[in-house]
Every structure is written in C-alpha cells, then in structure tokens.
C-alpha cells in the first residue's frame, strides 16, 4: 500500500510531469511565468486545488452518477478555486494582485479536471491525494523552472518579496523578449525540446 502511494506521488514529479510530459495546463504556464514569485504562487494555488478536488471527487466517486460527473467535478473544483481566491485575497494580497485573473482560471485548467476525471474518479481517496500532490508539485516545479529561465534572462535578477537577487553584473542588458508573451512560447518550446532529449526513464 505504502509503495503505491509513493508511486502515485512520484509519477507526477517526472514521468508524467504535467506541462512538459503530458503537455497540459499551458495557459497558466504561458501567462504567469514572467517572475519566479508568480510562477511558484500559481503552482501552489493549483496544487491546493488539485489535492482537495482530487480528495473530494474520490470521496464521492461512488455516489456521483456517471452522467452528471463533469458538472459535479466542476462544482467541486470551482468551490476550491474560489476558496483559494478568497484566501489569497485575504492573506497574500500582493501575489493575488499579480496573478489576478489567472486564479479564477484554475477552474478550467486541464490538469485539475483531467486528474479528477482520469484518476480521482477511479481510485481511493488516499491515492488521489498522493496523485494530486505529486501532480501539483510537478506543476509548481515546471512553472518555477520556466519562470526562472524567463526572469533571469529577461531581467537579470530574481525578485522575492521586492528584494531582487541580482545574478548578473551591471553590464548585463536584460533580454526583455523573454518576459514578454512571445518569449513564453519560445522558451516553453525550447524546454519541451530539452525534455524530449532526456529519455523518460
């Protein structure tokens, strides 16, 4: 039993890491990865939603009729997204301001519904939590990597809580393209390319 929990947890970290291996959840990964802070914040918010929605979907999986399962899942997911939104507004307001519209958009993030449909609706709650946690952390990690690449090259520093950690000297001239929208596409493409060069196992 313990082994399968570990298995469900670790698959989201590498072999099925959401944006890079199964290419899901691209909307947030393209939109909010201009700073590492945003990327990680978005990743954690998604992880929270994933874990709880997976847990509740899995808990009710036997009582939800198959025909209305998608509306049920969406209601559950939307509830947690709204909870995250309210909590972020109340406790991490600056981050909420930066992520803005992308927090409510977690509802339509393919990863969340995808996991609910593909995993949580068929497996026991403890496995679903492990799966949600693994997927969420994998997603957070991917966002962090992409946003780190973009922020470092795009601004020459990484900023946490308004304090920049300058990585390049003053002679560095920011590669502004990277933090702009098209830079996200090019960067994601290159990272996907690198991921494909590394064999799965």
């Amino acid at each position: 039993m313990a082994q399968s929990i570990a298995k469900e947890f670790t698959k989201g970290l590498w072999t099925e890491i959401a944006p890079f291996r199964i290419v899901l959840g691209l909307c947030p990964i393209l939109a909010v990865t201009n700073t590492v802070e945003n990327g990680i914040g978005m990743g954690l918010a998604t992880t929270f939603v994933l874990v709880f929605s997976n847990f509740f979907v899995s808990l009710f999986r036997n009582s939800i009729p198959a025909k209305v399962r998608i509306p049920c899942f969406i209601v559950i997911i939307a509830t947690f997204v709204t909870i995250v939104e309210l909590l972020m507004q109340a406790y991490t307001y600056p981050l909420f301001l930066k992520l803005g519209i992308f927090i409510p958009l977690i509802v339509v993030n393919c990863i969340v519904l995808g996991r609910a449909e593909a995993f949580a609706s068929k497996n026991a709650p403890h496995l679903s939590i492990a799966d949600g946690l693994g997927m969420g952390i994998g997603f957070t990690f991917s966002l962090a990597v992409l946003s780190a690449v973009r922020e470092i090259f795009g601004t020459g520093a990484i900023t946490f809580y308004e304090t920049p950690i300058v990585l390049f000297g003053p002679s560095f001239e920011p590669f502004t393209f990277m933090v702009e929208a098209p830079g996200a596409f090019v960067c994601l493409g290159l990272l996907l390319c690198i991921m494909n060069l590394i064999p799965k196992k």
Partner: peptide, 27 residues
C-alpha cells in the same frame, strides 16, 4: 446529487466570503 453538492459548496463559500470580507478590505 448535483443539488446537494452545489448547495454545500455554496454554503461553504458564503461562510468563507463573509468571514474574509473585512480582512480583504483591510488588505
């Protein structure tokens, strides 16, 4: 099922909304 789920989530959200309202405004 659908009614129960939506009712419960609606209830939770309204409780949360009222309890965080003040905090949000001050933020």
């Amino acid at each position: 099922v659908l009614t129960i789920i939506t009712a419960v989530s609606g209830g939770i959200l309204s409780v949360l909304k009222t309890s965080t309202e003040e905090k949000i405004e001050s933020q």
